[in-house]
Design a protein around this nucleic acid. Structure first.
Lengths: 143, 143
DNA sequence: TATTGTTATACTCTATAACTATA
DNA sequence: TATAGTTATAGAGTATAACAATA
């Protein structure tokens, strides 16, 4: 009866396609690299701490475009797994300086490799020119 | 100390930008149209039921690229709010035919208007040519 | 007063696994 | 055997509000 249901008018909604694409990418990462035990978001946090030792939650929140409480949740889960460690900031008593633990560093190394492989899966369907176009167009959406 | 933290190497990761853009769009819809009490996903479901009365969960799942259980959660919440109603399918005892209630139809009308306004916010930054490009490029990511 | 971090709380989306009923 | 729906359960991500400590 409904053999050929499609999005209909919804197909015209750009936001919906972006959500779909986002979902497809998330799903692929989870399916293919789930054994890492890290989501892409968690990898982003580890990656930033790795490249900016001493980074604070506020910085992570700003760079990754998250609420403070959301950042807290994320960071807390990684600390619980002993992938991150904290130390009070020397210069500002309100801030907390994060660092990777040895386990965190080791897992990040594996995760970076996964991200690069995954990124290759994602981008290999585009020409260099198309990739540049896509990045430029997406960049226009940032508020 | 970290005045100028940016994404660094992560900036090269296309997947991250798609996640960011997705977040930006979601946030804007929630902030601007939160009084509707509907998420974009929920609007999609209502929209599809509205244009395909009698549609079943399996169809929604396929078209919106969701798991059956995920679809169930979504549909159930809308039923609880009396925006959707169900009836057994005449042709297949396993299927359930969904319809909009009057409240659902009324809310959908408002939601469509919100979606179109939101879509205008999103797309007005692009030229017609750019929009076409973006759609084409995003289309390549669907598995 | 403003910023940083924290906690409590809540909601959406997502998915797996095991189950029932129907085809 | 396969499909449609259901339930229990779990986890990730998101955010608001209220609070303490520090600047």
């Amino acid at each position: 009866m409904f053999d050929a249901i499609d999005l209909g008018e919804l197909d015209a909604i750009l936001g919906l396609h972006i959500r779909r694409v986002h979902g497809t990418i998330q799903r692929h990462f989870g399916d293919r690299y789930g054994d890492l035990g890290l989501t892409q978001k968690q990898v982003s946090v580890l990656w930033l701490v790795g490249s900016h030792p001493g980074i604070a939650q506020t910085d992570l929140a700003r760079v990754l475009d998250m609420d403070r409480a959301t950042t807290m949740t994320l960071v807390h889960a990684l600390e619980k797994r002993a992938l991150l460690s904290r130390a009070p900031s020397a210069s500002d008593g309100r801030r907390i300086a994060f660092q990777l633990t040895e386990d965190g560093q080791a897992l990040l190394t594996r995760a970076k490799s996964a991200v690069r492989e995954h990124e290759e899966w994602l981008t290999s369907r585009f020409s260099a020119h198309e990739l540049k176009q896509l990045r430029t167009l997406l960049g226009k959406i940032y508020r």
